[in-house]
């Protein structure tokens, strides 16, 4: 059992949750994740370790409640507990001092980006962080990322915050200007966003790392469910990744596999909605 010591709402459907997990807090490195299962009978889902405090023995998760499992997890109150948290899993991010780097986050990818930005800042990089969302309500962690970055740029699709458009807009401007062009780019977000970033940096040959989000079951390399095509090789994202060289990733294959259970998820989503509605009606 892993006790919840805090659970804050940062933005609509985005929770920051702190859990007691001393061993994971001590072992964890930037870029790694945990497999979380709320209770008996629930799904195992991967969540990035956003931050950790080895002394206090706690880890921080940023969770976007988008489906049945994430919603139930964020509903756990302070003092409550999560049955299973296993990790840290995945490879740690390769961090060096590149000098100037750009970190690009979209949607919940921004949460996954946070520990990377922190580690890159600690290594002395000069960071431009570009985060985006559909509207201001979906832009998360702006203050936290702003504190670690030299520049923070925000884009929204409806222009309700920052500049109107996509994260690729400001990134394109940076790349085009020799005085600002980054030595490395880290991008985490929806697959189409990561694909667009990879396409922008391929030509100028800028090293680009993406953190992939395939469906996972065990997270230990046992099931093969998280496989992605990277160059000529099939990789298991949970053990070989989740970070990969963006220029080699088959993004179309990844986004296609992510839809494998769309029908089943929608049904379950509807079922939990119903249950909630019924309880409220009582």
């Amino acid at each position: 059992m892993f006790e919840v010591v805090s659970n804050e709402i940062l933005a609509e459907n985005l929770h920051k949750m702190v859990l007691v997990a001393p061993r994971i807090a001590r072992a964890r490195k930037a870029g790694q994740f945990v497999m979380v299962r709320l209770a008996q009978g629930e799904e195992r889902i991967p969540l990035t370790i956003g931050d950790a405090d080895p002394e206090a023995g706690t880890i921080t998760l940023f969770i976007q409640a988008i489906g049945a499992s994430t919603r139930k997890i964020v509903d756990t109150p302070v003092g409550g507990s999560i049955r299973d948290v296993a990790g840290p899993l995945g490879k740690e991010t390769h961090i060096t001092n590149w000098g100037r780097v750009a970190c690009v986050g979209g949607g919940v990818g921004t949460a996954v980006l946070f520990p990377l930005v922190k580690a890159l800042a600690e290594a002395g990089n000069e960071i431009t962080t570009i985060i985006g969302g559909r509207s201001s309500r979906y832009v998360i962690l702006a203050d936290e990322l702003g504190a670690l970055s030299k520049n923070l740029l925000i884009t929204t699709e409806d222009g309700s915050l920052g500049s109107k458009g996509f994260v690729t807009g400001p990134l394109g401007e940076m790349i085009a200007d020799p005085a600002c062009a980054p030595k490395a780019v880290f991008a985490v977000g929806p697959v189409p966003m990561m694909k667009a970033v990879a396409n922008m940096t391929r030509e100028p040959g800028i090293e680009t790392i993406v953190s992939l989000n395939p469906i996972m079951i065990d997270g230990t390399g046992m099931c093969g469910g998280c496989r992605v095509q990277v160059g000529s090789e099939t990789k298991f994202a949970c053990v070989d990744g989740p970070e990969f060289d963006a220029h080699l990733v088959d993004f179309d294959g990844l986004s296609d596999r992510l839809t494998s259970y769309r029908k089943e998820e929608a049904q379950r989503h509807a079922a939990t909605d119903c249950k909630i509605a019924k309880e409220v009606a009582k």
């Binding site: 079951i217 099931c223 093969g224 099939t234 494998s260």
Partner: peptide, 20 residues
């Protein structure tokens, strides 16, 4: 650790390794 078949189409939707 599942052994892959290394044939075309192995990453299609609906292809499982036995362990999964």
């Amino acid at each position: 650790l599942p052994t892959m078949l290394n044939i075309m189409g192995e990453n299609l939707k609906g292809v499982y390794a036995a362990n999964e």
